[in-house]
Simulated assay, not measured.
Amino acid sequence: MSGLILTTAGAAAIEAAYQAGTVVKITLAAFGDGGGKPIIPNPDATVLVNKFGDAPFTGGASTEGMISGQTVIEARKYPGNVLREVGLVSADGVLVAYGDYPDTVLPSDGAPVMKEIIINFAMTLTHAESVVIDVDPNVSALTISEADKRYVKKTGDVMSGKLHVQNDIAVDGEVYIGDAPLLPAGVPLPWPLSSPAPGHAFLLGQGFDKAVYPRLAQAYPSGVLPDMRGITIKGKPDGREPLSFEADGNKSHGHVMEIDSTDLGTKQTTPGGAYQLKLRSYRSNTSLDGGESSRHSIDQDRGLTDYGLIERLPDHAHSLPIGPHIHTGRINPDGNPETTVKNIAFNYIVRLA
């Protein structure tokens, strides 16, 4: 069974009860054969595709955010039918929840295979406090002592009991091999679907009724399941308590970045652009022989003529010392918001018992 889904009609009935301060009483588990083929649960469903029977609840509870229950189908009442669909029906006849079930053939009269099918369910539900699972006091769940009398137990390859069965059997909600349960209540199980398996609940940090699920209470004595969303399981190291939480983090470490210093030495500018200085002057007439003098005088108040009286500078270059230098660097953060490994997402579920 891939899980029950809340129907549109069921959601409306629960919301109306919540607003009115009343409750929706779920009284029956209905079951059918899906019209001869597997069904796909549809929230718009109001009836089963092909119902062939129903049964009261042998156990049930409503806790904060979750409802759960158990019903027993007496296979001998419906010989030859194939179980494929299950629904929860209220006292007002509303199909509150609907789900599929793996094809299970109910044996014909006299077939020595099974007498009963025990169906456990659990649903996370908004306004679960407005829902009541009506348990029939005249119908009780199968106990281990009763099962020992009515079903065989398998020890090694030896079968004993009134019936011959092909596989290990369910006894009071537990699968037994010999005298030991195959899977103790409380073990978190990875589950690939969006709804919990029959008789299981998601680990969402919600509370549960310890009186209804005493075996689960042995594993979680606080009456609260751990929230496993986005969490992985770690083998308990010494010094830590079971179920203690550890936040994500990196192992203490450092990073090293080295940038070499380089001596660029001394560089020269490109030669060229020679420049000749000139002196602006005028000729003097103070020659001793009365002629023109080659002497020059500088007078800022007289007209000037350029004369190349200063020798031209040749082409040349300048030296520019650069010397050693360094660069600074920065390491930028990179990565995901938290430390992760390659992974595939599963829902964690736990068996209700």
Rank of each mutant, 00 (worst) to 15 (best):
S2V: 04
G10V: 07
A13H: 03
Q19E: 11
P41S: 08
N42E: 12
V49Y: 07
K51S: 11
E64H: 13
S68P: 00
T71S: 07
V72H: 02
E74I: 12
V86S: 07
D92I: 10
G93N: 15
A97K: 14
Y98H: 15
Y101T: 14
L106M: 15
V113S: 13
E116C: 02
E116L: 02
A122V: 01
T124V: 09
L125R: 09
S130R: 06
T143N: 00
I144E: 05
V152D: 01
K154Q: 09
T155Y: 12
D157I: 12
I177N: 10
A185C: 05
W191D: 04
S195I: 08
S195P: 04
P196G: 10
P198Y: 09
F202T: 11
F202W: 06
Y220G: 05
P221C: 02
P221F: 13
D227L: 11
M228T: 14
G235A: 15
D238A: 14
P242Q: 06
G254L: 08
I259E: 08
S261F: 05
L264I: 00
K267N: 03
Q276P: 02
S281K: 00
S284V: 05
S287L: 02
D289I: 07
S297E: 11
I298V: 08
D301F: 11
G303P: 13
I310N: 02
L313S: 09
H318D: 07
I322P: 01
I322Y: 03
H327R: 06
H327S: 10
N332M: 10
D334E: 13
E338S: 10
I344M: 01
R351C: 02
